[in-house]
Design a protein around this nucleic acid. Structure first.
Length: 461
RNA sequence: GCUCCCAUCGUCUAGUCCGGUCUAGGACACCGGGUUUUCAUCCCGGCAACAGGGGUUCAAAUCCCCUUGGGAGUGCCA
């Protein structure tokens, strides 16, 4: 059976790149009727928090990524890592290292100065059993380092193809820290092996770690899983996606009013194209079509335009009642007081046309609330005849309904011989202050005669 | 420095494995037009790419080499 896993570290809110990795693991597992394990990699005590872990899980659930086992926490599996690390020491595949940070730092700088690779120089590897015993007895802090044996490391990556790592790219590396915590490369291998993970799907930044991990798999006598390294998601300018490029976390998109289905759809198709070529697919459709071989080898840039388009497509499909509920979740509280429920609903539906994400409703709705917008003197001067005519007509009629508004605008068009944009644009501008907006008759009808008059009388010169 | 990965329109990509069907297809964005006497929607059209150079071959976006450019790793971070 296929077993995949998503193994984030709880050091911040979930990044879209991370989310996509989760999505790929999920899709692969579901496509193959396998299972997905959630594992929290919290061995970095300084940066991992329970709060972040909860946020992570919230984001995952929101996106609709269900896992089958876990969450497991590495911090709760300490004894296991220690046991395996010591097993390696016993078998002569790893060794205790008593070098201090300062010594290592110094040697590294020296090596760099000489132009040789800044790898561990093997000092403690040569220690005799007796020397080790004495240091241990004296309670000198130690780490456990893995003995890297010479030889190239070769493996097949399901996305990248055959990879050959030349020997000598790293020295004997730490697998267990002096505080007893395992290091990422070690904990991952132990966990993936013990949890029966068959397919490791993760970001490309881990590609070179894979060599180290394969060495550990072999030393421990475990079979290596299939590896798949997905290319990174970059910002629009080709650099690493970071805060200065706008929203980068799943939570931010949720807060702006993107739909989880849309973000899922977008992210799944960033670097992956279904054979059908469809762009808008449901989760089930993507699961059906998912094929790891069709994941691109090259990095992709995060394109907010396409996400916006996709999201708007999803919004268009929402039923009126559900849409209203959603819109109200994102509507500023201050907008709830001026209208009765039915009118507010009408305003919301009217204003929702063309929005790409729910937060935008707040901008669209403004024309129904702001009676004191200003227009330039020049504009007013150029449109005085229309303003006066409109004002007189409106004030002379009682009980104006939607059809009546239509009639009024029509008459103005006739009398001033204006049509199309020439006619509607100024009507819209003098009554709402905006050049664009929803159906103008609807807007005027909601505003009502009195408010419309009040708005225009300020512009009569 | 060393190791590894990557390279098709502005963006996501199809095509690359198994060379001819590619005067390189689709989508987003953008521009233009139509519908709506306005807005949104919708419809139609346009713009626009095989990074460069060498090979191999009757034939190369597709195979090989080099260059250039981008990215990752080289931690008691993950």
């Amino acid at each position: 059976m296929v077993v995949t896993r998503f193994a984030p570290s709880p050091t911040g809110s979930m990044h879209v790149g991370n989310a996509r990795t989760a999505i790929f693991n999920y899709l692969f597992a579901r496509h193959n009727n396998g299972k997905l394990i959630l594992r929290i990699e919290d061995t970095d005590l300084e940066r991992s928090t329970r709060e972040n872990e909860e946020k992570l899980i919230e984001d995952l659930k929101w996106l609709g990524i269900e896992w089958d086992e876990g969450p497991f926490r590495q911090s709760e599996r300490m004894s296991i890592y220690k046991e395996y690390a010591e097993k390696l020491v016993k078998e002569g595949k790893a060794f205790y290292c008593f070098c201090t940070d300062e010594e290592l730092e110094r040697k590294k700088i020296e090596a760099e100065a000489k132009g040789i690779p800044p790898h561990y120089d093997g000092t403690c590897r040569k220690l005799t059993d007796e020397e080790v015993r004495i240091k241990l007895e004296n309670k000198i802090p130690y780490t456990i380092r893995f003995k890297v044996e010479p030889g190239d490391i070769e493996f097949d990556d399901l996305i990248k193809g055959n990879i050959v790592m030349k020997e000598g790219m790293f020295g004997d590396f730490v697998i267990l820290r002096s505080n007893g915590m395992p290091v990422y490369n070690f904990a991952v291998v132990v966990d993936d092996a013990l949890m029966g993970v068959t397919h490791v799907i993760r970001a490309e930044e881990h590609l070179s770690n894979t060599a180290r991990q394969i060495l550990i798999y072999r030393a421990l006598g475990f079979n290596t899983p299939y590896f798949s390294h997905t290319p990174l998601i970059l910002a629009n300018d080709g650099s690493k996606l970071s805060k200065r490029h706008g929203a980068t976390s799943v939570a931010e998109y949720r807060q702006k009013g993107y739909l989880p289905e849309a973000l899922f759809n977008y992210l799944a198709l960033l670097g992956f194209t279904p054979e059908s070529g469809k762009e808008k697919l449901s989760k089930d459709e993507i699961i059906k079509e998912f094929d790891i071989k069709r994941i691109s080898k090259s990095p992709s840039k995060f394109d907010i335009n396409k996400l916006n388009w996709l999201n708007s497509e999803y919004i268009k499909e929402i039923d009126r009642d559900v849409l209203l509920k959603k819109l109200k979740l994102f509507l500023d509280k201050s907008y709830f007081c001026n209208y009765d429920k039915n009118t507010l609903d009408r305003i919301l539906i009217l204003s929702s046309g063309g929005i790409q994400y729910f937060e935008q409703i707040n901008d669209n709705v403004k024309i129904f609330f702001d009676d004191s917008f200003n227009l330039s003197d020049e504009y007013l001067k150029n449109n005085q005849s229309l303003i006066k005519l409109f004002y007189n007509k409106v004030s002379s009629i009682n009980n104006i309904n939607k059809d009546m508004w239509k009639e009024i605008v029509k008459e103005i068009g006739k009398e001033l011989s204006l049509k199309g944009k020439e006619l509607f644009m100024p009507v819209r501008v003098i009554t709402t202050g905006q050049e664009h907006g929803p159906d103008i008759y609807e807007v005027l009808d909601i505003l009502g005669k009195d408010r419309v008059l009040k708005r225009i009388e300020r512009f009569i010169r």
